[in-house]
Computed example of a mutant assay.
Amino acid sequence: MGPSGPRTGGRSPGAAADGGLTTGAVARLLGVAPTTLRSWDRRYGIGPAAREDGRHRRWTGADIAALRNMCRLTSAGLPPAEAARAVLAGPRATAAPEPGRTSRGLGEPPLGSARRECRGLARAALRLDAPVMEELLTEVLDRYGLPAAWDEVMVPALHAVGRRWESAGERYIEVEHLLSWHVSGALRGVSAARPPVPGAGLSLLACAPGETHTLALEALAATLTQHGLPVRMFGAALPVEALEEAVRRTGPDAVVLWAQSRDTASHALAARVGAVEWGVRGARRRPVVFTVGPGWAGRQPPGTRHPHGLADAVDALATLGAR
């Protein structure tokens, strides 16, 4: 959902006698941090035309319309300075940038050649702009489909924010948490785009014990669901005994084990899961174990499969189920 418009009946909280709004009220209205509004005013001149007593900001309807354009352009990928110049130049200059346009401002997350939507998503995260993040995530999923949206927008944005946090100590950890939460919500909102595939095998998805990073598995679960392939997602840090019991109870064709770090990527775990048998006596079967995530890089356990990327994993699991 996008930001709602200003109220027309009565005086909104934070409104001045002349109908203008305080900075705090505008920040709540647009879902933008007050510090961001003050920065745009100070650096680029995107500020209120009127100031009460010569000091206190009072934002009019025209001022708020300019801010909406500023939010839209920065979220579409323009650096704040360039977006501000377009806003100040008037309505004819505030069209969103064409696809493929790549311009960067100083101090932005290092996103390389990622899509412009990725830069917009990272900027929205840095200013804790939840409504814009939701809009962007919905748009990229609709426009590019889940695998491309994950690989080209969500993952690079998460990496960029993570690098910003690592380079600045604990300053941006709230940014990473907020972005992760909204990405997770967008993935869980994906629904099946086609009917269930007849005879498709079941895939169990779980993080290794001690592993708490689930977003990549959530993306895989959402993509399998979208393709009509059955899946059970068990999430973070599933104890190995519980995973073994889930295999026996559900009889999956595949078990996908995610490990973010080498500390949680255990060869013994993969072997133990791959040895679990299910089915009737005389026709016992074992699941194929897929090891995914950077923790397994360069140390793939014998007898397991190690797909590269989301699309590769989906193709491999779909083919396995069709045996």
Rank of each mutant, 00 (worst) to 15 (best):
M1Y: 09
M1T: 13
G9L: 14
R11E: 12
G19P: 02
T22A: 09
T22L: 09
A27I: 08
R28L: 14
L29D: 03
G31T: 06
A33Y: 01
T35F: 01
T35L: 11
T35I: 11
R38G: 08
R43G: 05
Y44N: 14
Y44R: 10
Y44V: 14
D53M: 00
D53W: 05
W59R: 10
T60L: 06
T60K: 00
G61W: 07
N69K: 05
M70R: 03
R72D: 15
L73F: 04
T74L: 05
G77V: 11
G77S: 10
P80N: 14
A81K: 12
A83W: 11
R85Q: 14
G90S: 15
G90C: 15
R92D: 15
A93S: 15
P99W: 06
P99D: 11
G100F: 03
R101Y: 11
R101K: 08
T102H: 07
P110E: 09
E117C: 09
A122F: 05
A122Q: 00
A125V: 05
D129H: 02
T138K: 10
V140C: 11
V140A: 10
D142N: 03
R143F: 02
R143I: 03
R143M: 07
P147Y: 05
A149T: 05
W150A: 07
D151F: 00
D151L: 03
M154E: 05
H159A: 10
R163F: 04
R164P: 04
E166H: 10
G169S: 11
Y172H: 15
I173L: 14
E174C: 04
H177D: 08
L178R: 15
V183K: 02
S184A: 09
G185V: 01
V190Q: 01
V197Y: 13
L202K: 04
L205I: 10
A206H: 08
P209R: 02
T223F: 04
L229H: 13
V231C: 06
G235R: 11
A236M: 08
P239G: 13
L243K: 04
T250R: 04
D253K: 07
V256G: 02
A271K: 01
R272H: 10
G274R: 11
G274S: 11
E277S: 12
W278I: 00
R281G: 06
A283T: 08
R284P: 00
R286K: 15
P287N: 13
V289E: 02
G295F: 02
G298C: 08
G298N: 10
R299F: 01
Q300V: 12
R305A: 09
D312M: 03
A313V: 02
V314L: 07
A316K: 02
L317I: 10
A318V: 01
R323I: 08
R323T: 14
